[in-house]
Computed example of a mutant assay.
Amino acid sequence: MKNKEQFVHSVFESIAPKYDLMNDILSFRRHKAWRSFTMKKMKVPAGATAIDLCCGTCDWTLSLAKASGTGPIVGLDFSQHMLDYGAEKVKAAGRNEQITLVQGNAMSLPYDDHSFDYATIGFGLRNVPDLEQVLREMQRVVKPGGQVVCLELSKPTWQPFKSIYYFYFQRLLPLMGKLIAKRYEQYKWLPESLVSFPDHQQLAGIFRQIGLTNVQAYPLTGGIAALHIGFKENIKQGPEASQHA
């Protein structure tokens, strides 16, 4: 039996060609709206730097680059197949000079402390072997006052929507994965990955536990997704320095 890291790697290597299409299905075509909401909350200024972990095919990486305009952006993923598809998007957008794509491990980032204004992870935190370690790494590489941002699938909290969603997610989604992406086991695994994942309140608690301040949690679309933003404490001015965001 492969360990989680090896299995997840094989999943994303195999589904890369249909990843964007399946994201539409997985999120009821809401993932673009969720990302737009996230970008508004982040308030990325011109020239800001960012690292986008588990960047996949680089949709969020490109959004960060467009918002920054000139700031260097890094997209990091452990799946080279995903990065290859992302590289095509980056090239088509004319962002080759601004965006650097790196094959790497989110649990051990190859960057110095205080390197970026933002560290983001979209629909990837539930897939890592140790989510707290990834969040600590994100916190480490952002500058004091910088933001750690997670957009992720979550757990609906109210009925009857909760029951309907879980039926869709656990029963119908794997079948659609088989029909559309020709990958049943991989899409059967996706709902399983959510079972042990913390809900939005628990994840906000983890953000605070590792030392992030002014933590904000936003359930989206009935709680099927959630946005979390936390700030790295500004040593010089204290945690209140980021209250304006």
Results as ranks from 00 to 15, higher is better:
residue 3 N to P: 03
residue 4 K to T: 10
residue 4 K to H: 11
residue 7 F to W: 13
residue 11 V to A: 08
residue 12 F to N: 00
residue 13 E to I: 09
residue 16 A to V: 08
residue 19 Y to S: 00
residue 20 D to E: 11
residue 20 D to M: 04
residue 21 L to P: 05
residue 24 D to Y: 11
residue 24 D to E: 13
residue 25 I to D: 03
residue 26 L to F: 04
residue 27 S to P: 02
residue 27 S to W: 04
residue 32 K to N: 07
residue 33 A to L: 15
residue 35 R to M: 08
residue 36 S to P: 03
residue 40 K to E: 10
residue 42 M to D: 02
residue 46 A to L: 14
residue 46 A to M: 11
residue 47 G to E: 14
residue 50 A to W: 05
residue 54 C to F: 00
residue 57 T to A: 07
residue 62 L to M: 09
residue 69 G to P: 13
residue 70 T to Y: 12
residue 75 G to I: 12
residue 76 L to S: 08
residue 78 F to W: 09
residue 78 F to R: 13
residue 81 H to P: 07
residue 82 M to N: 08
residue 90 V to I: 15
residue 90 V to T: 07
residue 91 K to Y: 06
residue 92 A to Q: 14
residue 94 G to Y: 01
residue 98 Q to V: 07
residue 102 V to L: 13
residue 109 L to D: 04
residue 110 P to Q: 11
residue 111 Y to L: 11
residue 112 D to M: 13
residue 117 D to Q: 13
residue 119 A to L: 07
residue 119 A to R: 05
residue 121 I to L: 10
residue 123 F to P: 00
residue 128 V to T: 03
residue 128 V to D: 02
residue 128 V to H: 02
residue 131 L to M: 15
residue 133 Q to A: 14
residue 140 R to F: 06
residue 141 V to N: 02
residue 142 V to Q: 11
residue 146 G to P: 00
residue 150 C to L: 11
residue 151 L to N: 07
residue 152 E to H: 05
residue 153 L to Q: 06
residue 153 L to H: 01
residue 154 S to W: 00
residue 159 Q to C: 06
residue 160 P to R: 01
residue 164 I to P: 00
residue 165 Y to G: 07
residue 166 Y to G: 01
residue 166 Y to W: 15
residue 168 Y to D: 02
residue 171 R to N: 12
residue 173 L to S: 10
residue 175 L to R: 14
residue 182 K to N: 03
residue 187 Y to C: 02
residue 189 W to Y: 15
residue 190 L to P: 00
residue 192 E to N: 13
residue 196 S to V: 01
residue 196 S to N: 14
residue 197 F to H: 05
residue 203 L to V: 03
residue 205 G to V: 13
residue 207 F to D: 03
residue 210 I to Q: 12
residue 212 L to I: 12
residue 215 V to M: 07
residue 216 Q to Y: 14
residue 221 T to A: 10
residue 223 G to F: 00
residue 224 I to Q: 08
residue 225 A to Y: 00
residue 226 A to T: 08
residue 227 L to D: 05
residue 229 I to D: 02
residue 229 I to E: 03
residue 229 I to T: 04
residue 230 G to H: 02
residue 232 K to M: 09
residue 233 E to S: 06
residue 235 I to P: 00
residue 242 S to P: 03
residue 243 Q to Y: 06
residue 245 A to D: 05
